[in-house]
Design a protein around this nucleic acid. Sequence first.
DNA 1: CACCAACATGACCGGTCGGTCATTTTCTCT
DNA 2: AGAGAAAATGACCGACCGGTCATGTTGGTG
Lengths: 210, 210
Amino acid sequence: MTETTATPGQRADMVRNRRLLLDAATAAFAECGVDVSMGEIAQRAGLAKGTVFRHFASKEDLLAAIMLQLLDRLTSTADRLVDADDAAAALHEFMTAGVEVLAADRAFCEVIGRPSLQLAQVRSAIERLGQTAETLTARAREQGTIRDDVTGMDIVLLLGGIHQTAAPLLDAQPQVWRRYLELTFDGLRATNARSLPHPPSRRLPTAQSD
Amino acid sequence: MTETTATPGQRADMVRNRRLLLDAATAAFAECGVDVSMGEIAQRAGLAKGTVFRHFASKEDLLAAIMLQLLDRLTSTADRLVDADDAAAALHEFMTAGVEVLAADRAFCEVIGRPSLQLAQVRSAIERLGQTAETLTARAREQGTIRDDVTGMDIVLLLGGIHQTAAPLLDAQPQVWRRYLELTFDGLRATNARSLPHPPSRRLPTAQSD
DNA sequence: CACCAACATGACCGGTCGGTCATTTTCTCT
DNA sequence: AGAGAAAATGACCGACCGGTCATGTTGGTG
């Protein structure tokens, strides 16, 4: 088969174990957050702890690999939507996909909310996602459906905010986030703008007023 | 003086040390989040670790005490605003105060976002805050300035969301949260409602559509 | 001042974590 | 099948954590 992993000179069992490890780590991080232990991940994968460290030199490396995968997948989703007729609808669909991912992955929420770790690759992946979202947003702005002070990075950051709003209720009402997405999206609509536009580059004039 | 701690039969140095401990813990939790160690807190207070555990039987107790203090302070702020003429403006002021607290306290963000710990008192304090916010919100709804599907608990939850949106930028732009507050508040205005109202009690009809 | 109970102290305990490494197992190639 | 390299293993290490406790110290009182 023409898998992406063409197993150039690698042993078959190593490739298989790597797959097991990645799957287990993805599930473990999603369920338990970034603080899940490497031992737990190894156990879920049916491997010894040492094997995990053979594939990834540190926990941070493993986490970064998985977060990058998620971020790139979201970027692809955004890319697929740039040609839609109704840019605002496309933007809405992108945001739905984004919050859906966040609602299903604890570690992703934690990393998005605080990428100040050492995860430089993650930061740049977020940048890329922001740029792709910007092309979506720009079209919606030009179509006059979205207020003109909203940027692509705003959209990306709002994903985390929408999810965080819904998070305390997620157990009781797994779909509440849709409601907060609608609420937030209403605030983005062009005709709904009340507050003065705040170009993201030129702000904080008398910032220390309080 | 008529301090709240009237030192009923307690030794003077104990009262003093308790003050030192509470101040140090407040600062430590705010700066480092809930994962700051008891040793670090003790060090900041200039006390031994054992002394900390004499004042609070567990780390959770200490954290709960400080979180409760913050939540009650916010509830007081909301209480002070219920008599304002412009309920929407009062609501806005409350939200400003709320996000301000969140932006300055890491532990508070973490606890608000995931009160699923054992902190029953914290949960009920959040409930109380939600009820007080509801009186504010109800007046704004009656005045027709806020869409009528928004509840007090919505407001409380949105505080966490707004902060989370701004969190990744807080280092570079400490005041961005004001921008996202305005954006969100625009979505709350009565005339800006587009999406159908979702009474929080009767939801999730065909929820599994995706 | 002298006494004692209340308080402060820090060494200590069990447990968990990320990470290492000598040894053993397994795959692959001839 | 046999040999050798690559990979898997799990015991092990040092660091850190929340929490305990025997011991030393201190503040209030008669």
